Amino acid sequence: MSVPPVVSQDHAALLASTDPKLAANKRLVYDMYRIVLQAGLADRAHEYIADGYIQHNPNAGQGLQGLVDYVRATRPERPILEVLDLPLVHLMAEGDYVTTTFVRPEKDANGETYYSSWFDLYRIEDGKIIEHWDPMLKSDPKIDPNDRKL
């Protein structure tokens, strides 16, 4: 039996930092995820994503427009929630980088649920997200991660 990782119940604590720059970077990524990726509001991506955005997910295009196109192709628009409702394990920042970790429930060949972890790394420059990494493979289908809740 697969045991899910423990998810955070206190997002405010994850967003807190004694360093104002780190707190701002974490808030930028958190709000981008909440508004653009969770709510699917691709038209607001420019508020968080730089024009020269470098995308390391091989299934999404480069630049701000590449992210906008990917969001539009993979999820509907939803209401904006005050907190992420995806199972967030941790949010951490160091320098110009912010990492998110989510629980991702999946089904095995027998239809049994197991749990994996999904990591995203973002680089911030001049108050916007300029670069992104995740473990997506070309062979992975385009998904809406909002369908992967506990």
Score class of each variant (00 low, 15 high):
133 W>H: 12
30 Y>R: 00
39 A>T: 12
9 Q>S: 14
114 Y>F: 14
107 K>D: 08
57 N>H: 05
135 P>I: 11
9 Q>D: 07
80 I>V: 15
20 P>L: 04
8 S>I: 04
65 Q>F: 00
104 R>W: 04
85 D>T: 10
130 I>W: 01
79 P>L: 02
63 G>C: 09
148 R>D: 13
27 R>P: 12
122 Y>H: 09
39 A>G: 07
30 Y>F: 08
70 Y>L: 00
32 M>L: 13
89 V>A: 02
76 P>I: 10
43 D>K: 06
80 I>P: 03
73 A>Y: 02
50 A>N: 05
84 L>M: 02
93 A>Y: 06
69 D>R: 04
53 Y>P: 01
133 W>S: 14
35 I>G: 01
55 Q>M: 14
39 A>D: 09
39 A>C: 09
133 W>T: 13
39 A>P: 13
26 K>H: 08
64 L>Y: 00
45 A>K: 00
28 L>S: 06
18 T>E: 08
43 D>A: 14
133 W>K: 15
9 Q>A: 15
141 P>K: 14
91 L>T: 08
112 E>I: 01
29 V>C: 01
94 E>C: 11
84 L>A: 08
91 L>Y: 04
98 V>M: 07
137 L>M: 14
2 S>T: 10
28 L>F: 03
138 K>L: 12
49 I>T: 04
105 P>S: 04
123 R>A: 11
22 L>T: 14
134 D>L: 03
120 D>C: 08
20 P>G: 10
28 L>T: 11
104 R>K: 13
30 Y>E: 07
113 T>L: 06
57 N>P: 01
59 N>K: 12
64 L>M: 05
117 S>I: 12
21 K>M: 14
49 I>E: 00
93 A>K: 02
71 V>S: 01
97 Y>S: 13
107 K>I: 09
101 T>S: 04
140 D>E: 13
57 N>K: 07
86 L>A: 13
32 M>N: 11
105 P>D: 06
147 D>P: 00
103 V>P: 06
23 A>M: 09
150 L>I: 15
146 N>Q: 12
64 L>E: 01
146 N>Y: 04
122 Y>E: 04
13 A>N: 13
60 A>E: 00
143 I>Q: 09
86 L>M: 14
4 P>Y: 03
109 A>Y: 05
48 Y>V: 11
6 V>W: 00
45 A>C: 10
70 Y>I: 00
150 L>P: 11
35 I>W: 02
50 A>F: 05
41 L>C: 03
32 M>K: 08
5 P>S: 14
119 F>Q: 07
34 R>N: 12
78 R>P: 00
